[in-house]
């Protein structure tokens, strides 16, 4: 018995050690990537990055900043979210709550899964064909639509998964009190899953915030601060891409700084949303 017990304890220690090791590996990789980014980028992050437009090589003030890209990205991601989140959430609610007796659910779920795996450049070409060619010019609408197209299946599937995790007891209790199905979903099911649905939405936003390829074919990019989405629209990622392609050292330093800004923007958005949720009581719900 003594030997067996030592053996079992040894095995337990070994498994525990392996778990720690691999967690450390993952965290280490994350730390390396962000450490590398910060070490390369932090020196170039200055006020000018946020306040100046890009300046071409040879002109006075070269290389300028990324102001138009930062603003453009925020606007375009906001537009994409306004289109993508409602559609995605409603589709997710349909899949989770209404589809059980419908022939439509299987195909919708399958298409959403395939859509998640479509290379983003394909989405860009689709946007080009559908919204750039007919409108006659590259434009911000097409860029936002392409990003929304990427968001919708992500939001739909996470919403579905999270709603299915809500205990059936909630639905039964609500229906037994005389609530209609729609009211049950709106007042009980969705609020109960809201915290985790928000997490899914944040992941979807982070995903599209980093997209470049679909924007190259749709919004194209612009060197000016743009507020009219009917014209070619600037974005941070496309500007990072162009800056990184330039042979000048200043341009590549600006690219590193841009990546750091992008990461910081997503981080700030995440923290803000989470704090807001906690303040409004959703954090406590999500934790349970």
């Amino acid at each position: 018995m003594q030997i067996a017990s030592v053996y079992i304890r040894g095995k337990s220690h070994l498994m525990f050690g392996l778990c720690i090791l691999f967690t450390a590996v993952i965290l280490g990789l994350l730390g390396m990537v962000s450490g590398y980014l910060i070490s390369l980028g932090y020196k170039s992050v200055d006020l000018a990055l946020f306040t100046q437009l890009p300046v071409p090589a040879g002109a006075a003030g070269f290389p300028g900043g990324l102001q138009n890209g930062i603003v453009g990205s925020i606007i375009m991601i906001a537009m994409a979210s306004l289109i993508g989140i409602p559609i995605g959430m409603l589709a997710g609610i349909y899949l989770a709550e209404y589809s059980s007796r419908s022939w439509l659910a299987g195909p919708v779920r399958f298409i959403a899964d395939v859509q998640t795996g479509v290379p983003s450049i394909v989405v860009g070409i689709l946007g080009y064909e559908l919204l750039v060619v007919p409108l006659g010019s590259y434009n911000g609408w097409a860029g936002a639509a392409a990003l929304a197209f990427i968001m919708i299946p992500l939001v739909a599937r996470t919403t579905e998964e999270m709603l299915l995790l809500v205990p059936r007891g909630y639905r039964e209790a609500s229906v037994a009190l005389g609530a209609t199905k729609a009211r049950t979903i709106l007042r009980v099911v969705v609020p109960a899953a809201f915290g985790s649905v928000i997490t899914g939405i944040m992941l979807a936003i982070a995903r599209v915030a980093g997209e470049t390829a679909p924007l190259l074919f749709t919004a194209l990019g612009s060197r000016f601060l743009e507020s009219n989405p009917s014209r070619p629209f600037p974005s941070l990622t496309v500007q990072i891409y162009h800056a990184a392609m330039e042979p000048y050292k200043e341009e590549s330093r600006k690219a590193w700084a841009g990546i750091l800004v992008l990461l910081a923007l997503i981080f700030v958005l995440n923290v803000t949303v989470r704090l807001t949720m906690r303040a409004s009581g959703y954090g406590a719900r999500a934790a349970r």
């Binding site: 909630y170 039964e172 209790a173 009190l177 005389g178 209609t180």
Partner: peptide
Amino acid sequence: MGMVFQKSNPFPMSILENVVYALRIG
């Protein structure tokens, strides 16, 4: 017909909102 279930299933809301749920939906 009110119903009480085997597993207690208060909604993830405040105590007050739980009690008045039926009135709210009315």
